[in-house]
Design a protein around this nucleic acid. Sequence first.
DNA 1: CGCGAGATTGAGTTCTCTCAACTTCTGTGG
DNA 2: CCACAGAAGTTGAGAGAACTCAATCTCGCG
Lengths: 249, 249
Amino acid sequence: MSSDEQKILTKPEPDYIACDKCHLSPLCSPVTVGAHAYDFTGKMVNRRHYFKRGEMIFKQGDKAELIFAISAGSLKLTAHVKDNDRVIDFRIPGELIDVCSLNEGSYAYSAQALEDIYLCEIGKETLNDIASQIPEVQGRLMKVVSQELINIQKSSMLMHGNINSEEKIAAFILNLAWRYKNSGYSYTRFKLSMTRTDIADFLGLSKETVIRLFKKLQNSKLIQIEGKSIRINSVDALQHFVGIKLISS
Amino acid sequence: MSSDEQKILTKPEPDYIACDKCHLSPLCSPVTVGAHAYDFTGKMVNRRHYFKRGEMIFKQGDKAELIFAISAGSLKLTAHVKDNDRVIDFRIPGELIDVCSLNEGSYAYSAQALEDIYLCEIGKETLNDIASQIPEVQGRLMKVVSQELINIQKSSMLMHGNINSEEKIAAFILNLAWRYKNSGYSYTRFKLSMTRTDIADFLGLSKETVIRLFKKLQNSKLIQIEGKSIRINSVDALQHFVGIKLISS
DNA sequence: CGCGAGATTGAGTTCTCTCAACTTCTGTGG
DNA sequence: CCACAGAAGTTGAGAGAACTCAATCTCGCG
């Protein structure tokens, strides 16, 4: 066995997202100004910065200097509430981390790796500088921010106002499926990289309720769960249960 | 009594928001291009369009041609969930209605006046046209969209993950207070223009629970409620109860 | 192989919902 | 200006959902 193969077995190459599926992609492709085409990617983006599982990418209140996009792996976002950190969202490959910080001095929440991850980074200041000088970049940045607004709104409409806990959990799963689809991954089978406790915290439920309702959804044949892997038996059935059509069939 | 006074008594002048407090204001002030100052306000903005209480401003799925800002009055936003309309948010003076629709073909939700209201309107296409031609306008639009993103994120962080219903309701009140403050109104005394049923629907609770917990919050001296008017006794105490400091003292 | 974090299960308690009755408010027509 | 009707708000009682606590099990990591 060559040392190369050995290396692959012990540390397999991560499943990097395709750049064209990443929400940051408008800012990662060459920009033409006049007769010349400049590629700002190399200047602006630091690609695939590795973070270890459990590592904090940044903490709530830290001075915000970088915007992040996830290239591989996932993370959770938390914010201080009553002396505790509460999970306020998760991020999967292709998604951006705190776009809001573009216009704020500091990060609105903390970000922590749920597994070993790779992030692409853009310097906030550099980005804003270039954007203010080159309308094309300004326009692309606008596109990125607008899309972010749309995504947040869709997620929040979905997650919001579910009457009972079973619907909340179903909506959570559907939301993740939708986002995996947007990032070009399988959206009927994926890994729940966060713990049950994280999910419970995010949804405002107890972990026991999360576990019991996962099981209930499984018993009603909507999903199959085994450990951290989930499979949606019928996206349409799940959408019907939640009452919102997020994914078109 | 003069006919002027008569008029005031029967139909008092609405409490229009000051333009400089409106979230749309960056797009409502003159833009200087080269040596000349153009005022796009007149061309772009149709000001103070009146809608009657109960009237639908637009319906979910309607072709989105206008962006709205509220000049006076308030409205509720609703979206279809399982054959019903569910309240997904409210809007107060100074706030924008569906900024997301700027980059979408249709409105993501319906908007209905909770009282007689006045709206300022900007044609989506006109705005996008001008923005793409004049970097200064593009930049201002960017500012508006970014701020919207920040506001939505703050609201959703606040409203999200409250464990029990009492905290949810307290967070709801705090959120409204914060928004009234942003719009330059009193944030310790304001009117709840929506019904208890609307609040319940928005928070995912029953109207009876809303009523009972309003009373409970009143008994613990955090607020005073009488019909539709609310008074926050101590914003700090309320923030402490919710566990998030949204309004700095 | 053993430890510790995470996941699961059961039992009892608390919270929130539902249903129904009743009161108050509001807007409309006479 | 009053009377009335319908909408909104309030209250109480009982049912059901979700939480807490505690014990146990499982799995991944060192």
